[in-house]
Amino acid sequence: MTAGELAQPSTAGGGDAGSGVVGIVHLYPTLMGTYGDGGNVLVLARRARARGLDVRLAVVGPGEPAPEDGDLYVLGGGEDASQVAAARELRASGVLARAVERGAAVFAVCAGLQVLGRDFEVSGGAVEPGLGLLDATTRRREPRAVGEVLAEPVNGLPLLTGYENHGGGTELGPAARALARVVAGVGNGGGASGDGLEGAIQGRVVATYLHGPVLARNPEFADWLLELALLAATERTGADGAGCGRLAPLDTPFVAELRAEREAYARSGKLSAESARTRR
């Protein structure tokens, strides 16, 4: 599977994702959930159930084995020590590598993105090996990237809105591609002055720097991940494809207002930052 193959929302099936069972594995929420990223799992589960899908959720704590038959593995952000602990446990167990090998989807945020990469640097300068599921390397980056982000997804999804808070700059290698192009904010922050890229996609491994939680602010993004998970579930169970396709649209109260407000705020911040640069 090439990096871009799943970048477009699938159009097969025509509006009914069928009666699938989707297994979501929430990895180490106690370690990797510092910025409300646990909300991503809540949103996924709720949106799946609103479509009549059965959701099996496994919440995996440190030291516990993760299920081998998940369809979507979710990893949030966290502080340095937690991040290193999570990376070491995942490398030792190999569960994510096996899951990706058999076609499961993975969604990671911030420190989770860094953990999925080849390696990452923590404060103090130590470089920790990652899982190598994303062709990405992360080094410390000054100053810390903190603030609202807007980014235009490469796969036609609506504008992504989120909040970033990270001290890492991530550079993507040729096997991975960016999830989005930054409109406001920093994003991956690769390269000396930032490369304008946000997040990463490699096969069914999807990662972003955005908190918010990002799936609460971007429901279409959540649905796209669910569609990936459904695809994985269909392959896993050997069903005949009834579980594939687009999910029906779902009205989510208050999200339109939230998105509009955050977008306006991020754009105004971008303008004031630009005018500040101009004045200098």
């Binding site: 297994g23 159930r49 959720l57 496994a58 084995p65 993760a66 299920p67």
Partner: peptide, 25 residues
């Protein structure tokens, strides 16, 4: 808006079946 009960997966293995965030945190 609440998921109607009854259709939850049975509790086995690591799957919690019933989704309860307060258990998560």
């Amino acid at each position: 808006v609440r998921e109607s009960g009854g259709a939850e997966a049975p509790h086995h293995g690591p799957w919690s079946g019933v989704f309860r965030f307060c258990e998560v945190i």
